[in-house]
Design a binder for these strands. Structure first.
Length: 528
RNA sequence: GACCCCCUAGCUCAAUGGCAGAGCAGUGGACUUUUAAUCCAACGGUUCAGGGUUCGAGUCCCUGGGGGGUCACCA
């Protein structure tokens, strides 16, 4: 679509008809000595504060009286209704809206005409006046002065339907946010949820730390990484796929409770539940194990839901669930057996398990390795039915190279995953702290890797070395923050809880993709 | 990566293969308590791009682009 690179110093940029009209209005303001982009505003009250002030004052006022003292509010002009010698309009600031009532005889002819002719929907405006209540009952500001704070050249999206085009909403999130209050609510709630996660861990004595995003070796999960290159070091780096191995090094160092909230990156497909960069919370606690960590996770989810939604329950896509403890604990083996009749322990080899899985109706490809078949059984038969919060516990060792074996069953590890509404929101285990067992597990991964499993973990010798200094018995948890936020905000896609989801570059006419990315602020359908 | 669906005015949407339209926004006008204000008038188009079929294509076919969905992949 009609996009060209934008340059402030280059040839005049082409504005659309509507944009040019608004630019002309800005020029007319300048000609009359008014800066359409002044440096400062003089706000005395937010919309909400003004509203509260009037409510506190109203009892003292005569009927239809107005506040004797002037207030100044600021905000975006979001509606305007002109009626002869009066104008009604709304200013919206960060937290609320307030109606303006402008009268030609109060504002003065010049200011009134200016407000009508030179101000547009979307402009940032400052208004001074006295608060009163209209006949229709709305607290409003009888304006004695209005001033331009920032002229908008783009018209805001349609007032009734907002911005609904999915692509435009993601590419121009700023327009989505300014047009759709629900979207602002989602991201405000996301922020509060993350604050609640931090508070929960801080209250329990966890130390928030930061570990490398650029890593010389990736690990801690089974995933393909993004690869990059550091020029000065002339060395390959990977964007981290997990925080895990660095956080556990900190337990070796003597910290007993650490956590990190940050971005992980995985070079894989994009869908409703997967984004190439996503926010992960990982926390580790010395002298804890996966059982105590289950209790911690329950308490954490309840606290976050209560702080963000007001109660330990949520509704997602029409289904309501109660988050109150205690959530059922079911072994993976039982859950699979109950769901499809296959006991994977009775089928310890690939061929036998494959046959059993297919007999149960599973769709599994012929070459699938044993642990992956178990995973398929989980996905196809168990997961869709885990609506109420549930912990699946005790996974086969082959699925979990960083988790500690069960003392009474070395074929399984002490691991759990919390499931909610048919999706997994985390992963946790009693951490493997035996350096030689860890090395053996890495070597096993290496064999898988050699056999063509691109997602098998590489051997991290430095991590094994760290474990050789001794790591206390430890419980560790990873929570997919975006997925948790999806549930809390009732959003169907991970893109709806990520402000700027990854998108393919728009094609650049006569240029390359980079140019299009730089000019992507342009309205796709307008030549800018 | 495969399949399905979508792409029309700044935005939200119409248009049996037969003159590209409406609402909102914007422009001009009427209107001194409106709130999806109302009324009058004029304006606004590379129908994603390119090719093809046809007397005639927004519509049918092909190729490409972007997006969404399903699947595949996916601690």
């Amino acid at each position: 679509m009609g996009i060209t690179a934008v340059s402030m110093r280059g040839p005049a940029m082409e504005l659309s008809e509507l944009q040019a009209l608004r630019r002309d209005k800005a020029d007319r303001l300048r000609e009359s000595g008014v800066d359409p982009y002044p440096t400062r505003a003089r706000r005395t009250h937010t919309a909400a504060e003004a509203m509260a002030r009037f409510h506190g004052l109203e009892a003292e006022l005569p009927p239809e009286g107005e506040d004797a003292e002037a207030v100044t509010i600021v905000g975006r002009l979001v509606s305007r209704r002109h009626q002869g010698k009066t104008i009604f309009a709304h200013l919206r600031d960060g937290a609320g809206e307030l109606q303006l009532y402008a009268r030609r005889d109060v504002l003065g002819e010049e200011a009134f005409e200016g407000f009508l002719k030179l101000f547009d929907l979307g402009d940032f405006v400052e208004a001074t006046g006295h608060l009163f209540r209209t006949r229709m009952g709305e607290v409003s500001l009888r304006a004695t002065a209005v001033a331009m704070l920032a002229k908008a050249l783009n018209a805001p999206p349609e007032k009734w339907h907002g911005l609904t085009d999915t692509e435009l909403r993601y590419r121009q999130r700023y327009a989505d946010l300014l047009a759709n209050a629900e979207v602002r609510r989602v991201f405000a709630l996301r922020s509060r949820a993350i604050t609640a996660l931090r508070r929960f861990l801080d209250e329990r004595g966890y130390l928030e730390v930061e570990t490398p995003t650029l890593q010389p070796l990736y690990g801690g999960a089974a995933a393909r990484p993004f690869t990059t290159h550091h020029n000065a070091l002339d060395q390959t780096f990977y964007l981290r796929i997990a925080d895990e191995l660095y956080l556990k090094r900190l337990l070796v160092g003597g910290f007993e409770r650490v956590y990190e909230i940050g971005k992980d990156f995985r070079n894989e497909g994009i869908d409703r539940n997967h984004s190439p960069e996503f926010t992960m919370l990982e926390f580790y606690e010395a002298y804890a194990d996966y059982r105590s960590m289950m209790e911690t996770v329950e308490a954490m989810i309840v606290q976050v839901a209560t702080e963000t939604l007001g109660e330990p329950r949520l509704t997602w896509q029409g289904r309501e669930i109660d988050l109150s403890p205690s959530w059922p604990r079911r072994t993976l083996r039982e859950a699979i057996h109950e769901a499809c009749g296959v006991d994977y322990v009775a089928h310890p080899d690939q061929g036998s398990l494959l046959a059993a899985a297919r007999a149960a109706g599973a769709d599994v490809e012929t070459g699938t390795v044993w642990p992956r078949i178990v995973d398929e059984l989980l996905k196809q038969f168990v997961r869709p039915n885990l609506i109420r919060p549930t912990f699946l516990v005790d996974y086969p060792v082959a699925l979990s190279p960083l988790a500690k074996r069960k003392p009474d069953d070395p074929t399984h590890v002490e691991r759990f995953q919390p499931y909610l509404l048919g999706g997994e929101i985390g992963n946790a285990f009693t951490e493997l702290n035996d350096p030689l067992d860890q090395l053996a597990r890495f070597e096993e991964q290496q064999r898988d890797r050699a056999a063509g499993d691109e997602e098998a973990m590489p051997i991290d010798a430095d991590y094994v070395n760290a474990l050789m200094y001794g790591m206390p018995p430890t419980g560790g948890v990873g929570i997919g923050v975006d997925r948790l936020v999806m549930l809390l905000t009732d959003q169907p896609s991970i893109r709806d809880v990520i402000l700027f989801p990854a998108m393919r570059n728009l094609p650049a006419p006569g240029g390359d993709g980079e140019t299009a990315a730089i000019a992507a602020g342009a309205v796709p359908t307008a030549a800018v």
